[in-house]
Design a protein around this nucleic acid. Structure first.
Lengths: 220, 220
DNA sequence: CCTACCGATCGGTAGG
DNA sequence: CCTACCGATCGGTAGG
């Protein structure tokens, strides 16, 4: 048997990360004590410190692991041989699937990132920006005229708003699931895209948008 | 001059609430100390406690004031003589206007409500549920067939997702403003509504939605 | 209004 | 010698 970590060390470590994520998500990072983490994980506090350097490292790893999971989803979707609309539906579906499986980590990523030190925060936010940029490109691929207007970026953020807000109202045990919402989100977003009028107006008219769209297009 | 509070008491008190909301929004409720609040407000700590009973009361009043502001917007929109789509656009526009003016309070309402004690939290969440219910009705009024499917409730939450997520990506000083986004949000949402297929299928077809919509309709 | 200070609890680590 | 822990308590700092 090779020297090094005891068998089960990594397993125990992952359970601690999952368990800490649950507490951070429910109570917030600062309001959660290491005593609570230890209690919830079923280990003593000194033992807890055997698996993690300190409380801060818990936050860093939870956030970083999750954002890396999202980056992996994007990379996988880019490899699949799909047309632009199908790729977008794949992205939306796989993101909501991960959101459902890692709800605690996702909430920590969105609410507790402000507690990261600048260097760590920037690394996590950079990864997040990569993910958002990939979505924005996938969206622009479904409607290339969007690209010149720069409108695809705020539209991407509206899509993330729909998805990232779901943890506030979709109960884990409820009848309505993330999986059931995926096609609804996709239909709503694609249907809406066609209703947003572009500055050059290749699209069907929609009232009230022209002025705002021009204001945005002026930046480009 | 009548006895009672010194002149300017209420003004000073409101400034303290606004200033505390700013800190809570940036650092979170638990991570913010009363020393920081006093310093940022330009008063001594004992003086701060002359205007507010304790730290918890700051949180309660910030959240409650803001949700009451939102309830007032809904009440006003219901009085205006508008057809259903115009009323929805009015609601979206006025909400984003308040979001822009009270960004700190809005973030506290959405992120720190978990630190309220059960009785206070339920009171605030009840008010929030009233606001959401009014939006859901206004949405259903624009497309009555939605009501029977119960789909208008998750769709309402997707709309709130788009709006409530905006504070994460719309910088206060940026070229893109809440006001400019209002018609874009409205167009995207209305355009999307028409693409969501209903169980009884009075609507134009949209792929991938039928199964999920039926799953939801089964609850009714 | 300020300095000073309390009871309680924090994150983290000693000895065994 | 190593690891994997426990009971007890450290120095600092929070709200008030």
């Amino acid at each position: 048997m090779p020297r090094g970590r005891a068998p089960g060390y990594d397993t125990q470590r992952e359970q601690i990360l999952a368990c800490a994520a649950e507490l951070f998500a429910r109570q917030g990072y600062t309001a959660t004590s290491m005593n609570q983490v230890a209690l919830a994980c079923g280990v003593s506090k000194p033992s807890l410190y055997h698996y993690v350097r300190d409380k801060y490292q818990l936050l860093v790893e939870i956030a970083e692991d999750h954002v890396n999971r999202l980056k992996a989803l994007v990379a996988r979707a880019q490899q699949l041989p799909l047309d632009p609309p199908a790729r977008m539906r794949e992205l939306i579906g796989s993101f909501l699937e991960v959101y459902a499986d890692a709800q605690a980590a996702h909430r920590v990523l969105t609410e507790d990132v402000k507690f990261l030190e600048p260097v760590d925060r920037e690394r996590v936010l950079d990864a997040q920006r990569e993910v958002v940029a990939a979505f924005a490109e996938a969206i622009a691929d479904t409607r290339p005229a969007l690209r010149a207007t720069e409108l695809h970026k705020p539209l991407t953020m509206l899509l993330f708003g729909m998805m990232n807000w779901m943890f506030t109202w979709l109960q884990p045990g409820g009848k309505l699931t993330h999986a059931a919402m995926a096609p609804i989100v996709a239909d709503l977003f694609f249907g809406g895209l066609n209703a947003v009028r572009l500055p050059a107006s290749q699209a069907p008219p929609a009232r009230g948008t022209a002025a705002a769209a021009k204001k945005i297009a002026r930046r480009a």
